[in-house]
Design a protein around this nucleic acid. Structure first.
Lengths: 217, 217
DNA sequence: CAACCCTTCAATAACTCTATTGAACACTAT
DNA sequence: ATAGTGTTCAATAGAGTTATTGAAGGGTTG
């Protein structure tokens, strides 16, 4: 094996990781999978793809070993291969946002008008019980892991929970991350129903990541 | 802008970062650029591409804002956009190596037979002056930044330096990183010439990264 | 300003990727 | 077994990517 052949092989392998994240559908799938295991059907629905197409993309991700599967009866659950993948996705997103300002501009424009706070702004009120943290993701994602103290109130089944939420406290909604629209949808609906709700820019992934880096320093 | 359109736009932008690193040639260019600024011609030669092809790939990287250019006379120097890009590349490689074992297998097989040490194994001898660290990269990369105490001895011009290297000390060679063959080439040549040389698995990027994380903890 | 060198452009053919379609496979429950 | 449901397979057309080629820009130097 000469020098050129060696480099072609090595960079050819590296390429498979690059190609895995070189497609918007697969990136979207990975973001949903960051929240916990999901079936093919769920993933297809979440990302507005046909089941066959989602399956095809998932197999591509599996070939790059970014995701793994577990059979459970007739369902197949896809999940991220491990924590390194989740950490990588976070850094991937951070770099993209830093280098490609259009992302942040699009996000800003989409969420304009939705009452929003940063985690720092709201942390004291949450700690002092003057605000309640609500998790607007589907219940299975809440069960797979949620922010400490959060209450589950999936955005698409909010009516069922309305009578269990306090009207005398702030409701602080989060969801999957900065490109997820569930919290903002829930906030609009809650405010219409007479609650005092706002969105917080936080997710399980970011929270865990901040905890980890905080402990290190 | 509805929810789906928003996601398509955002993930479509993220995709441009993914596509930038979805090609072995571009990954190789980025690795060379991690060592410092280079002209198109240099990059083309280093990666065994035609100049036109290299230029095409470099423009793609520039469009993704991973690299930037500076004109200097008739030359155009390409360089990584900033430190975040270098850090990302390191993590990208780490994840690829973790998930795709074929990479490490290929590396192991290529460097089998070359006397090699890890940084920990050799650090004490370097500190005690019983070994000399030599930088086998081209001189301009040495000038752009090198390991503390390292002497420049480019692998392709080793004869010129032979009489300046000590025969009574270990020579510890490094180059660009784990996929770079300069150090191993130099080690073979040096040992043939009667020196006591070995390769060390370290690079400027990895060294800086370790220093940074060591200080944090 | 003309010759020169470095870089980019434009066109193209070969190749790869993607969404879609309908069929096939696999597991469960009746 | 059979029907039903979740997932994958196989084929394909359309879109995108890549290396190659030769020509054209854009600076610099004599």
């Amino acid at each position: 094996m000469d020098k050129r052949e060696f480099k072609d092989r090595v960079y050819g392998e590296l390429e498979t990781l690059g190609k895995a994240v070189a497609n918007r559908r697969r990136l979207e799938l990975l973001d949903v999978l960051s929240q916990g295991p999901h079936t093919v059907e769920e993933l297809a629905q979440e990302t507005a793809m046909s089941v066959a197409n989602a399956s095809q993309h998932l197999q591509r991700l599996k070939k790059a070993r970014l995701v793994a599967t577990e059979q459970e009866g007739t369902y197949i659950f896809y999940r991220l291969a491990n924590e390194s993948v989740a950490a990588f996705l976070l850094i991937f997103r951070q770099l993209a946002e830093e280098r490609l300002p259009l992302i942040d501009a699009t996000v800003q424009s989409f969420f304009r008008g939705v009452p929003t706070a940063s985690w720092e702004e709201i942390a004291a009120e949450l700690a002092g019980q003057r605000a309640v943290l609500i998790d607007t993701r589907p219940e299975n994602e809440y069960l797979a892991g949620h922010l400490p103290g959060a209450v589950s109130a999936p955005a698409d089944r909010l009516e069922e929970k309305l009578d269990k939420l306090p009207k005398d406290k702030k409701l602080v909604a989060y969801c999957r991350g900065p490109y997820c629209t569930m919290a903002s949808q829930a906030v609009a609906q809650l405010n219409d129903a007479g609650f005092d709700a706002l969105r917080v820019e936080m997710s399980v992934q970011e929270y865990n990541h901040e905890m980890r880096t905080d402990n290190q320093s």
